[in-house]
């Protein structure tokens, strides 16, 4: 199996995880470990997904976990249990800013939470295939707590381009960030369909 195939199994696992199919995701990641027993991503994903039966993962966890991180990890697990994924993502981003970016488990959690959020965004925003419209008067936009990236996204709403098509034309903002912003604008009632 080529490194590309392994990478694909890891990615497919993330997609399945994003759709709530944790067991199926773990099957794929374990397949990776069968071929490459030291694959750190697979170990981290299995561990972060809460699967305790994996001997290798548990070992890694014991070796790398420091006290402070352990507290953080527990807090993230609590957030995930209560399905507060957006808050979990914000907290994880905060940890990355605080120099935890070298912590593999935190990075694995980011991938997992991202996958979960993408699943939610896809479900609630019709896989981004719908054409968004502005639900409020243009002069009322300034009443909201937005930033220039939000302002830019709003300016791209033209009445015939779908969210997916709009996202394709915005190269200055990362795709996940765009999805998040579309979700926020919809939740705030600024945009609708």
């Amino acid at each position: 199996m080529s490194p590309e195939d392994i990478e694909k199994l890891l990615e497919d696992g993330l997609t399945l995880y994003g759709y709530g199919k944790t067991d199926d995701a773990i099957i794929l990641w374990r397949k990776v470990l069968e071929i490459d027993p030291d694959n750190q991503k697979a170990i981290d994903y299995i561990q972060s997904a809460g699967y305790t039966g994996e001997q290798k993962a548990a070992e890694v966890h014991r070796v790398t976990t420091k006290d402070a991180e352990f507290i953080n990890i527990n807090y993230i697990r609590d957030l995930l249990k209560s399905r507060r994924f957006e808050l979990a993502y914000e907290f994880l981003e905060h940890l990355v800013e605080k120099d935890y970016s070298s912590n593999r488990q935190i990075m694995a959690y980011i991938s997992l939470v991202k996958a979960q959020l993408i699943k939610i965004y896809n479900e609630e925003l019709y896989n981004f295939k719908k054409v968004p419209k502005l639900n409020i008067k243009e002069q009322d936009i300034v009443k909201y707590n937005l930033d220039k990236s939000d302002g830019y996204i709003i300016s791209m709403i033209d009445g015939y381009s779908s969210m997916e098509e709009i996202m394709q034309t915005i190269s200055t903002v990362d795709r996940f960030e765009l999805m998040k912003r579309f979700y926020k604008l919809t939740k705030l009632g600024i945009t609708g369909f």
């Binding site: 936009i141 300034v142 937005l146 930033d147 220039k148």
Partner: peptide, 15 residues
């Protein structure tokens, strides 16, 4: 010409 949240500074958004 009306461009809300056109840019931003450390003090916030500029319309």
């Amino acid at each position: 010409i009306s461009l809300p949240f056109l840019t931003e500074t450390s003090h916030g958004a500029i319309h």
